[in-house]
Design a protein around this nucleic acid. Structure first.
Lengths: 115, 115
DNA sequence: TTGACATATACCAATAAAGGAATATGATTC
DNA sequence: GAATCATATTCCTTTATTGGTATATGTCAA
């Protein structure tokens, strides 16, 4: 078997740093022409078009024709699965971290004292 | 050039669904032996060991010897970059969604009225 | 120390991704 | 309609990945 396609889901699509960069560039909500993204990223035009095709395949961006250009816009809702998956871990590094550690240590102490 | 290595960063490591499954299984905080993960995932043992090697390479899990077994534990803090990256988009699908839409529509209306 | 057990590693096949270069498509302008 | 501009697509090479299968490594037990 081979590696899962980049177009198989959002997780695979955003694994590529360049695509995360493109998503971040579109995060303002303003649709951008391919040329603008080429300039902003420093990538070659075909590379940008290919990355956009992947993002489009998973629904992360949508296209709109505008004269010669094509404007790409972000569909941020498609990132929800990523957020949903990672959010439960948030508590491990927020300021509650101390509390979690203390709680674990207290429990460990309780256990050792029982023995 | 080829695709970025699965071990290049956390984003690539968790792109693989099986590895996300393994991470989720370790999310309780209790270290698990490889055999337990094999049973829980239904994957073959070598497959699990390989996935664990990837997760270890990016620091997402750590290993501890325990007799014949090896116990894998999650290092949840390594997921912070993913959370940090996706969190700014959270507002797009929370209950504020209506407010965002309304705000955008109001602004658009203002613009059209100015012309 | 031999055997059983748990896990890791090596090797193989099939698959696909990334960037580059060249070219095709499609819209605008003259 | 021809030249031009913006973007997409095709082809190519290089390189990893995935899951098997088989085997190596390391630990415990009798």
């Amino acid at each position: 078997m081979s590696r899962a396609a980049t177009t198989s889901d959002v997780f695979n699509a955003i694994a590529e740093p360049r695509r995360r960069e493109i998503v971040a560039l579109l995060a303002t909500g303003t649709p951008r022409a391919v040329g603008e993204l080429v300039e902003a990223t420093g990538l070659a035009q075909p590379a940008v078009s290919k990355h956009l095709a992947v993002l489009r395949a998973v629904g992360l961006v949508s296209v709109q024709r505008a004269g010669k250009s094509r404007l790409y816009a972000l569909n941020p809702a498609e990132l929800k699965p990523v957020h949903d998956w990672v959010k439960p871990f948030e508590r491990f590094w927020t300021d509650q971290l101390d509390r979690i550690k203390q709680r674990a240590e207290r429990k460990a102490k309780e256990r050792s004292e029982r023995n």
